[in-house]
Design a protein around this nucleic acid. Sequence first.
DNA 1: AAGGACAATGCAAACGATTGCACAAGAACT
DNA 2: AGTTCTTGTGCAATCGTTTGCATTGTCCTT
Lengths: 334, 334
Amino acid sequence: MVTINDVAKEANVSASTVSRVLNNTGTISQLTTNTVIRAVKKLGYEPNVLARNFRKKRTRTILILTPNMTNPFYSNVISGICDLSRDMNYSSFVCNTTDETEQIKKTLDMLYKHKADGAILLASEKGQFWISDYADEFPIIQCCEYDPDLEISHVSIDNYHAAVETVRYLIALGHKKIGTISSTNKYLSTDNRLKGYKDALHEAGLESTDRFVSFAGKDYNYQSGCRAAEKLLAQSDRPTALFCISDVLAMGAVNTAKIMGLRIPEDLSIVGFDDVEQTSMFTPKITTVAQPCYSLGQKAAELLCKNLEQNESIPLETILPYRMIVRESTGPRP
Amino acid sequence: MVTINDVAKEANVSASTVSRVLNNTGTISQLTTNTVIRAVKKLGYEPNVLARNFRKKRTRTILILTPNMTNPFYSNVISGICDLSRDMNYSSFVCNTTDETEQIKKTLDMLYKHKADGAILLASEKGQFWISDYADEFPIIQCCEYDPDLEISHVSIDNYHAAVETVRYLIALGHKKIGTISSTNKYLSTDNRLKGYKDALHEAGLESTDRFVSFAGKDYNYQSGCRAAEKLLAQSDRPTALFCISDVLAMGAVNTAKIMGLRIPEDLSIVGFDDVEQTSMFTPKITTVAQPCYSLGQKAAELLCKNLEQNESIPLETILPYRMIVRESTGPRP
DNA sequence: AAGGACAATGCAAACGATTGCACAAGAACT
DNA sequence: AGTTCTTGTGCAATCGTTTGCATTGTCCTT
């Protein structure tokens, strides 16, 4: 293995000079710089990352904490983080935490142990104040979900207005009885989407009744979407449109509706959220609010890496645009 | 930060002794061992990973190379790898390579740079002989896909027999005209599933004609599944059953069939492969061959870690069981 | 012309662990 | 009793970089 000393010898300078050339630190004459670079190339020298990390107490590694990387929404975000951090010459270490506090803490402790330089949290439930202990010492970014009561940087979309806009759209189609499928999880987005839904109804002078609000379990999955939809649609005076806070829930709702003999969108309009790939494989293709998953991840990674690299400060809030995609599951009021 | 020397001082021994106690190397008396352990606990000493890695030229990190982590099949495998390697105190670094040779090489070069100790390749196309150059020097495992011409350890299922069994099942249902949707990609599994399909037909004395074989693009996606199915079903003398080499292709086929006015399974039986979550959200729920994605990942990670840890040798071949799941998309010949 | 400022470089000490070698003390053998 | 083995421990070198400080030479200022 060729070391910095070999290069130094070849270039007739000291190891420190080589180091300074390679790190762009200190003042080195153009002439020497050239000589060193030539020597580096000639010997095919590559700095030993292990030694460098050790000396600098840095690893060029970032942590990605996700409840579950199997979820297509998260896997897209993670993809964005991985790709960008790779381009910045950072490694990314993905960790499934299943939202368990102990697991999250254990993973974040890697920061203390110098196994990683910073972290991106994909989904923090609200009220986890202890996260600040880490964020005070290390750069941490919350991506997608975040806690507004914590002074930690986050990258997200405007869930409130996305919900408002969606429900307005349903209202514009003539719907008067609009239901929603929410969730019992503790994410901010869930609250904001519910609030947006209610405000949009209110703004249009429509009643917002508990009868039209159904909560899927915190696991958010297909089955719970089916059940939640059933509760709403079994009522004699049922909604004619459903705003679901995730696509998977929407798929469950579509399924339940079909089983109950309702045609979509003729009898019932359904809209989802996220725009995971499967929504367009479904029949009917589901109208949804697209989140820029990949970009959310990229942006978070970019902010984090730049902070680590040049100590550039991370803005407290970064909001990316959402986009409503009208497909086949919504139509005028029956 | 408390170092090994602090512990040594506290325990009135030398740093080497502390090191030996912690690494279980050399011979240390029970008495000293206890003293050291007490000192470690008292000071809350944690070995500096960076220094240790540097000295040992190891990182306790494994590389995961995937064409695309967004694919639900891979994300499940990756999940298995991540979870198991975390339990073994290894970090895992996921990298999207989009099957590009240059990207794969660049990632594997991290092994040379001591940024990782071993690697798991999720999907290698056949004929990439240069991979052996890496495998000769570092532990590498191919998971799911592999090249039989390379002497590299792999963890997989028996794709050939899975295909045979599936087609036999369709034959048992009375089908005589059975088509398949394959792909133009260069994966071994694709070849084996096609071969299994043909052999099963042959074994039953049924003709296997090119008219009934359609190839989706190498991207494997929903759209290409739709197109491939259309080619098969547009024929006047069309198949009554389709064996698709992936669930996503099967979903495309279902969709196309519906559009063409065919009822499933009354007019056409369709079976997929993989058992990704969405198959059961689809109407009808799709009959498929389940691969133990998560376990495949776990197994590969376990073998790799154990090899790194205790130099335990990795068997050339590890085959995990598949399982056919009959759901709603298959029925007797119309 | 003297002094100061500055640019360019080298020396050597870190960083925190691991490990080959040496050595002491006691045990076991002849 | 003398030799050899074994066991337990410490010393000091080492891994490959980075970096604080010292040094040299050059140029500018007054």
